[in-house]
Design a protein around this nucleic acid. Structure first.
Lengths: 343, 343
DNA sequence: AGGCTTCATGTGAACGTTCACAATCGTATT
DNA sequence: AATACGATTGTGAACGTTCACATGAAGCCT
């Protein structure tokens, strides 16, 4: 003979109707308690709260999303989250989103062009997200955003000034300008620039800042060098730089390339900062421990993410909001820069 | 008088019923076409496909999730996605998830302990994800997983061998052993170890691998040094190492600490690898450009993520699957190691 | 020719919530 | 004392899909 179980098995989680039944009210009242509606008597409220607690009831957010049309989820499409910049920005966005009660769904691109960006946004949208932030600092990425229908909330991070959608960005030009000015003030006749790839917005903006300070100071504008952000390219371009005797100061597009360059200079017996000053960009956590510790332009990626999220949330609510939000960079002086060598 | 618009405004996206109406069938038939059911005639199928295309219809995944109970979304809770290891693992998981048709929702922890891990899992679960991967390589994180109810699919990355749930991990012990053996073979009498914090699983496993090789080779086991993964701690502990004359080889818990150590040694005028050999762990992209280029133990984080996802997917389908999947690390020899100095 | 199978399609319900409205009650106003 | 009003609660529908079943038309066999 079978022993009947004492309690009827409740394997699946409790739903609103269960709570309503236990509290002796209708499901609508439960819903009201959940939303802190004023039209519930104190006593009922307590009874419902107790039932919720007892059954460990949790609202089904999928059902909520279906009926309200809001999923309380944001999408982030990003390029290479292994890099310090994008990773930190993503983290900033994500934490701000959670603080605002939103979940975050991500989509990393393997390659960055118009189609992949558009496809990623569409995928996220099909998934039901309320809005999307795009961390795709390439021209191609921004180009894609021009084709996004305006009926959907999209915000870009680090897009160029010509972007067609709202943008949160670090003032790259000001950062490069500050670094260049600082080097000139140390007595360097001019400053060379090892830039990032030309299809990256921030690379181009840094070039603008650098060049305008040189022009303003009536310094010679040396030819531009192009790397690809990797330490390897910094190392290889170091080769060319070694052949230029009058070179005393280099502004490098990011810290990784600066690392490669430092390495090449070290191998060639050039002393930094005695023979040559080097400034990086980003202030990655390792930068303070390079040989020598790197002077660099710090970007507050976390703040960038927060600002970006703020605009996005506004857009979702239908506000027009600012078209462009700018975060100020900061020059961090360490051991890789010094006075120009006496000739 | 008003001019009637030619088409009735269709502002909101098309739903199944719209497609059905246009194709002259019932919504069920549309659903069947979408799911490639064999019970649809070729002609009808074509008609429905055309309607889908014409209306740019996209299934509402929220509604699908509600009725099927599957959201085709996975959650990832991670600790510090700014670090190279977790970031790469996350990327691996995410790309594998997308390939398998799953979306990925993330939750980064600001602090790592039992409550935060559990809360993050619960949040993701309330959000409706089908399963969760936890990148929380601390004891505390693993401890938390013990309290997860078994009715939900959870997989851990880099958990210790005593974990109560399935785990994907790199064989840290083997990696440390390989590096230690390699140094002994170069003629070093023994190898020191600058380990990570004791509450990190991988730190402890590396210690095991290192110690067992020394014992096996009848080498002296020097006292253990503890850092906190940061370059700063490597730099500071370098101070202590400088005072030990017989020290010729150091295995460092990660590349960042190795960077700090290299910097300290450089400042003290010690030549690496001539006076001293240094081996790191992880093979971060910068490691090849340290001064000197760092010999290190590479971990294939992307593969780790892929394997982890594979287990998780299995769990969701209800398979029992392997309890533990191990990825082999690889020793990458560069310029920071060499023969022991002759005394 | 009747019954049985097979295929193609349609119908009703369900998932768990919110929205708009209806109903009920006690009480204060005139 | 009748009315109206505010507070509180309940009801029916809707969101867009899938599941389980019902229906109807062919086709085949004996």
């Amino acid at each position: 003979m079978t022993v009947p179980s004492v309690k009827p098995e409740r394997r699946r989680p409790a739903v609103m109707a269960d709570v309503a039944q236990l509290a002796g009210v209708s499901y609508q009242t439960v819903s009201r308690v959940l939303h802190d509606s004023p039209h519930v008597s104190g006593e009922t409220r307590e009874r419902v709260r107790a039932a919720i607690h007892q059954l460990d009831y949790r609202p089904n957010s999928v059902a909520q999303a279906l009926v309200t049309g809001r999923s309380k989820t944001l999408g982030v499409v990003s390029f290479d989250t292994t890099l310090y910049g994008p990773a930190s920005t993503l983290l900033g966005i994500e934490q701000a989103a959670h603080d605002a009660g939103y979940a975050v769904s991500i989509s990393s691109l393997r390659s960055l062009n118009r189609d992949t960006v558009l496809a990623a946004i569409q995928l996220l949208r099909d998934q039901g997200v309320d809005g999307v932030a795009v961390i795709a600092p390439l021209r191609a990425g921004m180009e894609a955003l021009r084709h996004v229908k305006p009926d959907f909330a999209v915000v870009a991070v680090e897009a160029g000034p010509k972007a067609s959608i709202p943008v949160a960005t670090v003032d790259q030009s000001a950062g490069a300008a500050a670094a260049t000015r600082y080097l000139l003030n140390l007595g360097h006749k001019t400053v060379w620039h090892l830039a990032g790839p030309s299809d990256w917005n921030d690379a181009e903006e840094r070039i603008d800042g650098w060049r305008s300070v040189l022009v303003e100071a009536s310094a010679v504008v040396p030819p531009l060098l192009r790397g690809d952000w990797t330490p390897r390219s910094g190392y290889e371009l170091g080769q060319s730089l070694l052949k230029i005797p009058e070179l005393t100061a280099v502004l490098v597009g990011n810290d990784q390339m600066a690392l490669g360059l430092l390495r090449r200079l070290h191998e060639a017996g050039r002393e930094v900062p005695h023979d040559l000053s080097v400034v990086g960009f980003d202030d990655i956590p390792e930068a303070a421990y390079f040989t020598p510790p790197l002077t660099t332009v710090r970007q507050d990626f976390a703040e960038l993410g927060r600002r970006c999220l703020h605009i996005l949330l506004g857009r979702i609510e239908g506000e027009v909001g600012p078209k462009r939000v700018v975060v100020a960079p900061e020059l961090v002086v360490r051991g890789s820069t010094g006075a120009a060598p006496a000739h």
